[in-house]
């Protein structure tokens, strides 16, 4: 191999191969993601509204103080927590059951699996609009079902805080259960068959087989599913905004909706930046946990 000299040699030095390879990616991310993030981080320490001509005013932690002392952020965090717990919980249970169903080989399995995976491929907006239609008291399937078979009255699911939460949770869980199913399925098919055969010889009960053989193989994947879905569900916005608009009252106003309102309707730009950073902090914690579990899992396998 011919050796070049000068700049090119410096550039091609094997020591710099790693940095050079990742440099383009880092530059793009810096430009489009990191710098905006830093900018809005800076903004969160100023007093600033995007719809006035007043210049930003440095104010230390004023925005954070303002945001954290108001009730609405705690309320919305609580609402978000309920939705996350409900939806992720439901996804785990349903996803697990679906995975058990699809873990074995049977005719037409691949095609039937496609039908179950379909909701995940829909856009959030589409899911929100059609679930709104399903829940609608006059035209909605749910109301018509209740009306014709149970009470004879139109059924208005979204009219109470609890009903609205259930409505949101159900729609979100429906859309994302296939995701959990995929993960659990991966765990189930990785269980070596000979373990089951051995268990058969030992005449183990199915529950014991489940806890001693099946569960250990899917445990870490379940944890990953919980974390991944939690990260995604914390950000929930489209679905809630279209389905309930945060109502009734503020019963379903999640942190995502609150950040949107603060930034684009109230123009409390620095407050929204501060809220964004609180949200970012949560995402960072969850993402680190997620990667930690992945590492654990990989080292276990080796």
């Amino acid at each position: 191999m011919k050796r070049s000299s000068g700049f090119l040699a410096w550039f091609m030095d094997p020591k710099r191969r790693g940095p050079m390879l990742i440099a383009p990616a880092i530059i793009v991310l810096l430009l489009v993601n990191i710098i905006p993030l830093m900018w809005s981080f800076g903004l969160s320490f100023f007093k600033y509204r995007a719809n006035t001509l007043k210049l930003p005013n440095f104010s230390w932690f004023y925005s954070y103080e303002k945001v954290l002392t108001k009730d609405n952020i705690w309320e919305s965090l609580q609402t978000t927590a309920i939705i996350v717990a409900g939806s992720v919980g439901m996804q785990m249970i349903l996803g697990f059951l679906l995975a058990l169903l699809f873990a074995s080989q049977f005719p037409l399995r691949k095609i039937l699996l496609m039908f179950v995976l379909a909701p995940m491929m829909l856009s959030n907006v589409a899911v929100a609009i059609y679930f709104k239609l399903f829940y609608e008291p006059e035209f909605g399937l749910l109301s018509q079902f209740v009306q014709s078979f149970i009470t004879g009255e139109m059924y208005v699911l979204l009219s109470t805080p609890a009903g609205a939460l259930i409505g949101v949770i159900f729609a979100d869980a429906w859309q994302w259960t296939p995701f959990v199913m995929l993960l659990v399925l991966a765990g189930l098919v990785s269980v070596p068959k000979h373990l089951y055969e051995a268990a058969e010889i030992d005449r183990m009960s199915w529950w014991r087989k489940f806890t001693t053989i099946t569960f250990p193989y899917v445990r870490s994947l379940l944890l990953l599913a919980v974390l991944f879905r939690t990260i995604e569900t914390v950000k929930i916005f489209d679905l809630v905004f279209i389905l309930t608009n945060g109502g009734p009252g503020t019963a379903t106003e999640t942190i995502g909706v609150l950040v949107y309102r603060t930034a684009f309707q109230f123009f409390r730009t620095s407050n929204s930046a501060a809220m964004g950073y609180i949200l970012l902090f949560a995402v960072i914690v969850l993402t680190s946990l997620y990667l930690y579990v992945i590492k654990q899992r990989e080292s276990e396998e080796i």
């Binding site: 609608e136 008291p137 208005v156 979204l158 009219s159 109502g247 009734p248």
Partner: peptide, 9 residues
């Protein structure tokens, strides 16, 4: 009126 208003909708 029509009960739709109970959803805030």
């Amino acid at each position: 009126m029509h009960p739709s208003h109970k959803t805030g909708g």
